[in-house]
């Protein structure tokens, strides 16, 4: 899955896994550089996400048919 389609939680989880690999294991330079690159890329994506604020606030109410509908408020 491409980074854009992943949830922030997934991205942060992947980042944490990479960082602990980099800090915990004796890696060969090849892998270390590979993981390092991936981690830095993830950090970039996460920071981009944190830069965008697009909070949606919705209200869930029951319509006359008894179905629950979400409507955006504010």
């Amino acid at each position: 899955m491409k980074a854009e389609n992943k949830s922030f939680e997934t991205l942060m989880g992947e980042l944490e896994a990479l960082v602990s690999k980099l800090e915990g294991e004796e890696l060969n330079l090849d892998d270390a550089i590979q993981y390092n690159e991936e981690a830095l890329e993830l950090i970039k994506v996460c920071r981009e996400r944190l830069g965008k604020a697009k909070q949606k606030i919705e209200k869930l109410t029951q319509n006359s048919d008894g179905e629950w509908e979400a409507e955006t408020i504010e």
Binding site: F8, L50, K52, A53, Q55, K56, I57, K59, I73
Partner: peptide
């Protein structure tokens, strides 16, 4: 709650159920 959630982490959407 809305104020705090918006200030701290606007990446999270809110669904209110009154």
């Amino acid at each position: 709650m809305i104020n705090i959630l918006t200030r701290r982490f606007p990446q999270t959407d809110l669904l209110l159920l009154p």
